[in-house]
Design a protein around this nucleic acid. Structure first.
Lengths: 346, 346
DNA sequence: TGTTAGCACTCCTTTGTGTCGAGTGCCAAA
DNA sequence: TTTGGCACTCGACACAAAGGAGTGCTAACA
């Protein structure tokens, strides 16, 4: 019972899952023996299916329907049965071509990645914009908008531009600002934002800063400019693909999902989870721990720049997703983005 | 026939349209005389309704259903029958509060505007990001990313930050860049981007520039930096509200609309049309001239900064929209945004 | 002991039928 | 010009019957 499945059970489970992924219809014993490669009588298959249902890998919507995979079934399939092949050269080229037309600007690239993920998978593409704290400082610039209002524009190594409005309570002359700018740009270049922040904190407490008015203000400004956004941003493309999925034909449930997307915060959390993990990660249904997404699965992978992980990207769709084709797409896209972010930027 | 409608006909048409907007159900003669303020017998109403149908203001889905408004009906309603009231103080406050929590950064404000439009109207909010050419130059900064790659960061008067990667074919020293930056920031401040471009073109041909290598390069860089984006960007919020509309229960048609939204270009075109117009504009169904949106209507208004129109914003929903409540919301939001963009920025 | 054929059973899906009722158009009377 | 009356149309809904796919169980077979 609790021991591992026999070879035969695994074959049958695999066939059922793949058939269900392809057709979205419950799979019966007859279909398995006729069209799929199972060389057994329907009766024997039924025995195995009953056993698999007993063990929780399959479920039947009602007595006289076939079986459909449970989450446990998908999980076992993804972990054990699935063998992912690499993309062939042609597909890789096709994907790569999408980026050719654009400039090399990071924001454009990330958007294109989300589009590509969506259009090549036929599901919904997700790309998380790098959190400020993991990016590398390259340049900061303060633009004075009014007496008390300064716009800090901040460029990361990879060409991502972030900006933030800062209110100040004492006037700064253009000369002050220029000095501060120069100081920061010379001191902080090449550090990660986390390091920059640490540095600012430590230097602010040092003796020198206490007496140097300008330095104090420089640190105040930069720490205001580099306050991390609390919530990350993500780029979602291809929501409309959800409307094609028969499992979401119910408008009620459809709406819940789309609203979840609009809200973004849940997706941010899910993508965040992939930050620590190497390679492609699959989150199935209730593993998301959000009831809104209990019928959705995510396939994610982290992408990185020169100095470690920057963010994650992936695809979200129904549990019934063709994992074998999408996993390589996500994997390749993450690698491609990592490669592109490393190129030509210094 | 072709002459104007009688007073009574107009009353009945108005009642039908408002009832249909409220219920999404075809309106029959009985309902009109019983619950709505029509003091006539059902039979008389039927005569009028037949006449209105003849004239093209109403249609009947089938013999034994009530009547529903046609596009012509809505158009007449919006142009002639509708009287829009102002928002009351409470609603204005509610809307205004949404902006309080955010910084004053333009991008945030525009996103919030789209959200607010959506949540107060219960339809989908649209906000067009100002086109580069209508914005006012405030500051430009060049960040050298590599030998041949420069990131131009460009700040407009209203605090919008745009950036663009530029490839150059001759190396520029940091010193060169600094001089160019200073020159441009001093020369161009306060001009609209259109004016900046004109100026660059004219100065480039002047004698002085021909001999001053640095000047030439400054102009080359700035014209590269200020190439207008071909296609504008828009911020869409609340797509999920479309899923609530009974008229889009059909997934097929739903999907077409959502895809149109994802693609954005059509919406950009529709919002562009509002740029020249004063006040609130209503586009109904096929007036959009896009078959994908033949069942959708837009309510748009332009917003502006100190120096004229910046962009448009609005709401998109089914033809059957409560125009009387949404028009003031769009109108007020456009004014509010215009006001906020004018404040505190210089 | 594992496999298979047969069979009764379940339950969803589809199709068809009949009823109900809302709404219409038209006509004749007020 | 307005109104009541009336026959008619047509979709919505409920219900029943037929059809069929798939199951579980049992008994026979290798």
């Amino acid at each position: 019972m609790a021991e591992t499945l026999t070879d035969r059970s695994q074959k049958i489970l695999e066939a059922i899952i793949e058939e269900y992924i392809a057709t979205a219809q419950p799979v019966g014993s007859k279909a398995l023996t006729q069209n799929l490669g199972i060389k057994l009588s329907p009766a024997s298959v039924r025995n195995v299916m009953a056993e698999l249902e007993e063990l929780g890998y399959l479920a039947s919507p009602h007595t006289s329907a076939g079986r459909i995979p449970t989450e446990k079934g998908y999980r076992f399939y993804v972990d054990t049965l699935l063998q992912v092949s690499d993309l062939d050269r042609r597909q890789k080229n096709q994907i790569e071509q999408q980026y050719g037309q654009h400039g090399l600007q990071m924001a454009d690239m990330l958007r294109e990645a989300s589009r590509t993920l969506s259009s090549f998978s036929n599901y919904t593409g997700l790309v998380m914009v790098p959190r400020l704290k993991v990016t590398i400082f390259r340049h900061i610039e303060f633009v004075k908008l009014s007496q008390r209002l300064i716009l800090a524009v901040f460029v990361t190594q990879s060409g991502l531009v972030q900006n933030k409005l800062i209110e100040i309570d004492e006037d700064l002359t253009p000369r002050d600002l220029e000095q501060i700018t120069n100081y920061l740009n010379q001191t902080m270049i090449g550090l990660s934002i986390q390091e920059v922040r640490a540095r600012v904190v430590s230097e602010m407490t040092q003796e020198k800063a206490l007496y140097d008015h300008l330095l104090r203000r420089a640190f105040a400004l930069s720490s205001a400019a580099l306050v991390d956004e609390i919530t990350g941003d993500i780029i979602i493309e291809g929501t409309s693909h959800f409307l094609e999925q028969p499992e979401f034909a119910d408008l009620k449930c459809m709406k819940r999902i789309i609203q979840t997307f609009e809200q973004k915060s849940i997706l941010v959390d899910l993508l965040d989870r992939g930050l620590e993990t190497e390679g492609v990660q699959v989150i199935i249904g209730s593993e998301t721990e959000y009831s809104e997404l209990s019928d959705c699965s995510l396939i994610t992978a982290a992408y990185s720049g020169k100095r470690g992980t920057l963010g994650t990207l992936g695809v979200i769709g129904p549990n019934r997703m063709p994992y074998s084709t999408i996993i390589p797409i996500v994997d390749y896209t993450a690698n491609l983005i990592s490669r592109l972010l490393d190129t030509d930027k210094d």
